[in-house]
Design a protein around this nucleic acid. Structure first.
Lengths: 144, 144
DNA sequence: ATAATAAAAGATAATTTTGTCCTATATTTA
DNA sequence: TAAATATAGGACAAAATTATCTTTTATTAT
């Protein structure tokens, strides 16, 4: 469904959010350790996320990644997915046709569009902060 | 969402269904011509579909691909997707974790599962024949 | 200022997916 | 039975994705 880049991107961001809520920065090594992802690949993804103002990066000693309180309260999964351009979920035709829309639909267009709308909604309504919170609290500890 | 193999697989099968309803076989060349797909790659996909009894292939002159009336009335998109193993839609965790289920869920498990169930249902309830029919008839000609 | 640290950036490598080519095999028709 | 035709199958190639490595740049603390 999502690309690896997207999966790591979401998981890394939630991990950063978790630390940011405690007022802490977190370094690359710690992140890829926490979410069990390849360190250099994760670095590339974090760079993209930082460029797109989803997270903040700081260089030097005590440097690392964090999210501002504004970012914590506004960043949705859809922002990450769009930034990392995962699988063209937001645009492409289900059957891979170059052009496909309601006026010129493929045989699967309407069925597919239905699913996509729901996926979109889910991503737009799910915040990183919410995921971070659900990780910490609750009956069962949700995994990352 | 789907892999290229899966996209071609679905489109090719609908094309075969269209011909089979007229009692005709259709050759590889005609198929990849009709759906604008790379011929040898399409051949590989059709082999897999034939092995899994989704379509019937015949060699020699007048050979080609067709669907039995039984196949026409029973094959669902889910059968094609499962056979071509497209993107592990039916199994994997949305965040890529090796194990993730209701008892040991990732932070996105329940939101993701919701979408996946709907996608599953859509694929299980959409028949190839139905897509073929929607291609032929209706106000707007649906594309393949 | 200098040394240490951590991210940025660019080059490179491995893997997977997608796509191609060639030979073999089966089937039909003459 | 022989020739023609069309799929099957295996080896091979290209492209995209995933992953790694090395050098550079910025920042902090001494």
């Amino acid at each position: 469904m999502f690309s690896k880049a997207c999966e790591y991107g979401i998981r890394a961001t939630v991990q950063i959010a978790l630390q940011s809520e405690k007022g802490l920065r977190i370094g690359l090594k710690e992140i890829s350790n926490a979410i069990d992802s390849p360190e250099p690949f994760t670095a590339k993804i974090l760079q993209q996320l930082a460029k797109n103002d989803i997270i903040i990066s700081s260089k030097g000693p005590t440097g690392g990644y964090e999210m501002s309180s504004n970012q914590l309260s506004t960043i949705m999964l859809s922002d990450i997915v769009k930034t990392l351009d995962c699988d063209l979920i937001y645009t492409g035709c289900g059957l891979g046709l170059a052009t496909c829309d309601a006026k010129n639909p493929c045989v699967l267009h309407f069925q597919f569009d239905d699913i996509r709308e729901q996926l979109k909604k889910m991503l737009e309504n799910t915040s990183v902060q919410q995921l971070a919170k659900s990780r910490e609290s609750g009956d069962t500890l949700l995994r990352l």
